[in-house]
Design a protein around this nucleic acid. Structure first.
Lengths: 150, 150
DNA sequence: GTATATGCAAAGGTTTTGCACAGCC
DNA sequence: GGCTGTGCAAAACCTTTGCATATAC
């Protein structure tokens, strides 16, 4: 069984235990916050959120916990235009399209790009995971709009 | 004519002048260093390099210069696993494939991905520029190798 | 001469690290 | 009780900003 946050906090906690890690209130708090978060969140913001609910919670601990959970595959990070974001691994199911002209960001289901991914793998041997970095480019609206200066 | 570093420093300098910018030794130094650099370089490192050749050169000036040149389209930045890198715009012709398993990074000519880009544009309306972010995934060697723990 | 660019210094923000103590198992 | 994890504080980085001065034009 793979530990996924969606299968419930307890499943992940069990996985942590099996990995020889200790279950602390701090780790529970980080996990709980990540479950509540629908989208991505950066470490700094997450740190604030968690601290609200578990006073005394230290930023260093948040960073260490994120590192651990990422290492165990429970979390994933994604690189967007403005930095690194964390989210539940099983929610690494969408791709960010980041428009360089208007700055907007749309989201695509990862599976919509599987044909492309497969093609790329066949042609270049590299099996891409388009969820790990955003994809830059120009969105449909900006392409349609008359060219403006930026 | 578009100002490109490869057309020579002087062409870019002329473009700067036309844009109403002043030509300072500092700006020349940054441009010169970027011409010498084959690949990508991050602002901090670039700052060091330039300071070696133009003593007194200040980091703040480097950042301001990079911002300006990026704004003018002479430079481009790319997001790799370990941060932002700058390079000459006309060298934004390659895509970084970053293997999440072994950490290696291969490079692909951007034009090798144009069919994919076109396909994506047709299907999703978004015209991707795969050079602006790296593409994460698993390289051919790691896919072939027996699954190891990470 | 005037407007722009630079240097300096300081602040801002994020992330990492060392170490003593606390607390999970 | 022993070892892992945490808090605290400091440091390490990277980047930005304000302001007086220097300088390109």
């Amino acid at each position: 069984m793979k530990a996924e946050l969606s299968s419930g906090l307890e499943a992940v906690i069990e996985a942590l235990r099996i990995a020889g890690c200790r279950i602390t209130p701090q780790r529970r708090a980080v996990l709980a916050e990540l479950v509540e978060q629908r989208g991505h969140i950066n470490p700094a913001e997450l740190s604030e959120q968690v601290a609200e609910k578990l006073p005394g919670m230290n930023a260093a601990t948040v960073y260490r916990t994120l590192w651990l959970l990422d290492e165990l595959g429970i979390l994933t990070h994604t690189h967007l235009e403005d930095g690194v974001m964390y989210h539940q691994s099983e929610r690494a199911d969408h791709v960010h399209l980041s428009c360089s002209r208007c700055g907007s960001s749309e989201v695509l289901e990862a599976k919509d790009l599987t044909p492309l991914a497969r093609l790329m793998q066949q042609r270049h041997g590299f099996a891409p995971d388009f969820t790990h970095f955003a994809i830059g480019g120009v969105c449909a609206r900006c392409r349609a709009a008359p060219e403006k200066m930026r």
